[in-house]
């Protein structure tokens, strides 16, 4: 094999060697080369030293209340999902502005539908508020879920190029 110490394209071979991830053929070739090249022996030894030095850092234990705190947060997310959306500054304005229009349209639609087959008494109309809030709530839930997803995808760079999916 050519001397990896003098081939910038192969300099990473010592990283793989120390990590123990070289394939059988590559390992055999490198070990044969190490027998005749002092420079590469030094490189390999140094990389192994780095690798061994890092072993000293074992991680901290998992906090005992990690799961319970997470479930509390998940529960809190679930309960605030609906009204949290309405309070979001970036959406509350547009949403609040659109709500009366949506309510008016829905009331008109219901009125027209009820009127079409036979003329109903005005008293048969459901209260406008009751009609308009129910469908809006469902939309808001879906919209917020999508917004959360888009926000995360955007932050993770998926939305930027659109070419990747969570992997």
């Amino acid at each position: 094999m050519d001397c990896p110490a003098h081939d910038s394209g192969k300099s990473g071979i010592f990283v793989s060697y120390a990590a123990g991830t070289l394939s059988g053929v590559e390992l055999e070739a490198l070990e044969r080369h190490l027998e005749v090249c002092a420079e590469c022996r030094r490189e390999a030894a140094a990389q192994r030293e780095v690798w061994a030095a890092l072993d000293v850092w074992t991680p901290a234990p998992v906090p005992p209340d990690f799961d319970s705190r997470l479930y509390e947060r998940i529960a809190a997310e679930g309960s605030r999902r609906w009204w949290h959306f309405a309070l979001r500054p970036e959406f509350s304005f547009r949403f609040r502005a659109a709500a009366p229009v949506a309510a008016a349209c829905l009331t008109l639609l219901v009125a027209l539908l009820l009127r079409a087959p036979q003329a109903p008494r005005p008293a048969a109309l459901p209260p406008a508020a009751a009609v308009s809030t129910a469908p809006v709530k469902i939309d808001a839930d879906q919209v917020e879920r999508s917004l959360d997803d888009i926000e995360m995808l955007k932050q993770m760079g998926f939305a930027a190029d659109g070419s990747d999916s969570p992997s």
Binding site: F66, R69, L70, R73, I74, E77, R145, D148, D149, M152, Q155, M156, G157, S165, P166, S167
Partner: peptide
């Protein structure tokens, strides 16, 4: 905590296109 919260929140749109751990570490790294 935030990593797992995001995993949970993204469950509705999850598609097993590649390793779950890759996705998890991607969120953590980010």
């Amino acid at each position: 905590q935030e990593v797992f919260l995001r995993v949970y929140k993204a469950r509705a749109t999850y598609e097993p296109t590649a390793k779950f751990t890759t996705w998890l570490f991607r969120i953590a790294t980010h």
